[in-house]
Simulated scan of single mutants.
Amino acid sequence: MNVFPDFDGLGGICDLREIVGALLTIVLIVAVLMLIVSAIIWAIASANGNLAAASKARTGVLVALVAAVLAGGGVAWMNWLIHLGDQL
């Protein structure tokens, strides 16, 4: 049995795909920029002995990394779920 979602069943689904794609791109760009800035602040704060700022910057690096992984892996995960549903 071949079960696949009907993506054309709703009106305006193409517009929704474009919006989601644009938002995903923005999230990935912001996450990567946040990762870079937080890593720079972490390095500078650690070098100057400011442990409070280094701790907050380290948290920023971890949050940016998780956000980038979730945003980047969201499409792959959804495709995997659709493929899994096709096999049921």
Rank of each mutant, 00 (worst) to 15 (best):
V75M: 04
G74K: 05
A22T: 15
A31F: 02
V3P: 01
L10M: 15
S55R: 09
D15R: 13
H83M: 15
A45Q: 00
G60S: 07
T59P: 06
I82T: 10
G60Q: 01
A71W: 00
V3I: 13
S55K: 04
A71T: 06
Q87C: 13
L33A: 09
G9M: 02
A67V: 14
P5L: 08
A22K: 15
I19H: 15
S46G: 07
G11L: 12
A31M: 08
W77L: 15
I29Q: 02
S38H: 02
V32H: 08
I41A: 03
E18D: 14
V63Y: 00
A31Y: 00
L62R: 04
L81Q: 08
G49C: 05
V75D: 08
V27T: 11
A54S: 06
A43P: 04
I44P: 00
I40A: 06
A39E: 03
A54G: 06
A45G: 01
S55Q: 13
V30M: 10
G12S: 11
A47N: 00
A76T: 12
G49A: 07
A31E: 03
N2E: 13
A54L: 03
V20T: 11
V61W: 08
G73R: 11
R17M: 11
W80P: 01
A45E: 00
C14A: 07
L65W: 01
D15C: 07
R58I: 06
W77Y: 11
A53W: 04
V66H: 04
I19G: 05
L24P: 00
I26Q: 13
D6N: 12
A71G: 01
C14Y: 10
I41D: 01
G21M: 12
L33P: 01
A53G: 04
L70Q: 00
I36N: 09
V61C: 06
V20H: 05
V63R: 02
D6R: 12
G60R: 03
A76I: 12
M34T: 13
G11W: 08
V63T: 05
V20D: 03
V32M: 04
A47M: 02
V20F: 10
G21L: 07
A57Y: 07
D6E: 14
A31I: 00
S55V: 03
N2H: 12
Q87I: 15
V20R: 01
W80Q: 03
L23H: 13
A54T: 04
L24T: 10
I44V: 15
N50V: 05
A45W: 02
V27R: 07
G74N: 02
G60I: 01
D6F: 08
E18Y: 06
M1C: 03
F7W: 08
L24M: 11
I41F: 02
I26D: 12
C14N: 10
I82F: 11
G49W: 09
V30E: 13
I29H: 08
L51H: 12
S46D: 03
L81D: 05
I29E: 11
L28K: 06
L88A: 11
T59M: 15
R17Q: 13
L51W: 08
L84V: 14
V3W: 11
A54I: 01
W42F: 08
I36L: 14
A47K: 00
A64C: 06
A53R: 03
